[in-house]
Design a protein around this nucleic acid. Structure first.
Lengths: 289, 289
DNA sequence: CGACTAGTTGAGGCCAGTCAATGTTGGTGG
DNA sequence: CCACCAACATTGACTGGCCTCAACTAGTCG
């Protein structure tokens, strides 16, 4: 099977510091490097709304490290010990799962404000690779400490459960896509999904730059790269989009949505919009793919 | 799209009693109908190993109802309010997800000792249908009470997280299957998976009766029922299995495993075996599909 | 500039889907 | 008990969507 040849060039990222086996709340309260969830513009994405400022400081203290990744660098690998959850602070990543026979498939694309590494909780080892698609910054949240704190803050506890469950729901919709949609429907869904997520983050919903190759898109959608390329060309011929390499302009969002089998919610619900400024009251995690 | 015509005959199952908005541990401790996790033979599947007998009683008290479902009856529906998790005590179910355009797909098959309803946590509404494939008994665990208790029992808390994360990992492997495997590989994986799960529950790993139709198998695997049927016939011709309607006998487990792209772990790891007798020390949840 | 990666496009083949006919099974009621 | 019916399953013939293989173009980086 084809293995990305550039994977050989991936450099190991600095791993998280070892986690203390036992943590008390007093320890967590100690000043730490650069934890500033309380003023982070993306906190409405990572954290439950409704935490008091005091609680926010406790959570901030959880983030004991920040990791910077260059494009192509690995955040964690399949099989390496799971110690922490990671919040995307800047940039984006892909996660890929590996079949026993070596086949690799993109399991998700993760952008600003999304939480990754969740699947490692189950076995204690990461179940996928996480690789930066561009220069990326990550907040590291040691999981044991997170669990400890979650026992003190019901709101945080519930948010963690919600985040995990939303990941399950997301996976279900991808299973639906992979199991029952035709190629053009899959790509339409993919583009609409990206559009929505950019929109919620305050970016344009109609013009954006793809961070992944045709092969990676295909891998995610269960298609070959040639099929993806052909579909982009056809969508362009049909006046649905304009493509220029990785630059995408959506010309007919409604038609794209219809193609993806979704109802046309003409304008996105403003409640789902996450203002870029801090102290906002956006809704909970805006994950999607 | 084809909708199972017999769905019209599904009768609504008795729903869970309304959940008190606020629960104290004292309330939970009160005697309840028939909660007997501490002596249930399947507890090593639902519950973390290592809980003291006293803690087990607390957890038992969580189970406030048992639901009996006849074949074809619904445990919960897409969109209905999420209030509880459900443990399969006897029998089996399928869960199906619904696309906006009405397409339906089986998302999983759940047997004895498995926990379902998890995906409802994210939105507060169930994200799929759960339908009994045979006469089935369910333990109902109100989720708010479970969260409350989880804050007291770190072991229970961690087990909940693990269960959620294992569901994510399971979904990832299905995505891999749907995205990159050919029909015969998919069916082989399906059979091997069922075999393993029956084995872990103390049943024969080589002879079992399918609880679902060809169409349901196909739906789960992203195939049409004719394809499933043809493959069963071909597997039989090739001497891999014997099929007689829904009765399956696996003649060549190794070849089946190889076809599914898995390493041949000749005999299953005894650590993963869950003895049917209570008070056993089997490992954690043995989910799979 | 040359080497390399990413992307586009075409020709042809194959796997799984579609349509259709027939066989089998299990439950129900006369 | 048997006849009947509906749901489930099997099998064949044909089709088509996506994959495979291949050639070519467009950027990018040392």
């Amino acid at each position: 099977m084809p293995v990305y040849s550039r994977s050989a060039a991936f450099t190991e990222s600095p791993q998280t510091a070892s986690v203390n086996p036992v943590i008390s709340l007093r320890d967590i309260n100690k000043p730490k490097p650069l934890a500033q969830c309380n003023i982070c513009g993306m906190r409405s994405l990572c954290l439950p709304v409704g935490l008091s400022n005091e609680d926010l400081l406790l959570v901030s203290a959880l983030v004991d490290t920040h990791i910077k990744l260059k494009k192509g660098e690995t955040l964690y690998r399949t099989g390496t010990p799971f110690t922490a959850l990671y919040a995307v602070r800047l940039g984006s990543l892909k996660t890929t799962v590996l079949a026993e026979d070596g086949r690799e498939q993109v399991a998700g694309y993760h952008m600003l404000g999304e939480l990754i590494g969740l699947d490692g909780i189950g076995t204690g080892n990461h179940g996928c690779h996480a690789i930066a698609l561009e220069d990326t910054e990550i907040c590291v949240m040691p999981f044991e400490q997170l669990e400890t704190l979650a026992r003190e803050l019901p709101l945080l506890q519930h948010n963690l459960h919600q985040t995990l469950a939303q990941e399950i729901a997301r996976d279900h919709s991808i299973m639906l896509l992979l199991g029952s949609m035709r190629a053009e429907e899959r790509l339409a869904v993919f583009l609409v999904n990206l559009s929505d997520r950019y929109c919620r983050r305050g970016y344009s919903s109609t013009e954006f730059v793809l961070r992944m190759t045709r092969e990676e898109i295909g891998s995610y959608l269960g298609l070959k790269l040639e099929t993806v390329s052909r579909l982009f060309s056809r969508f362009q011929e049909d006046g649905l989009i304009m493509v220029q390499g990785r630059a995408i302009k959506i010309l007919n969002p409604e038609a794209l949505r219809t193609l993806g089998g979704q109802q046309n919610t003409a304008t996105p619900d403003p409640k789902n919009l996450i203002p870029p400024a801090p102290n906002s009251n956006g809704s909970a995690n805006g994950n999607g793919a």
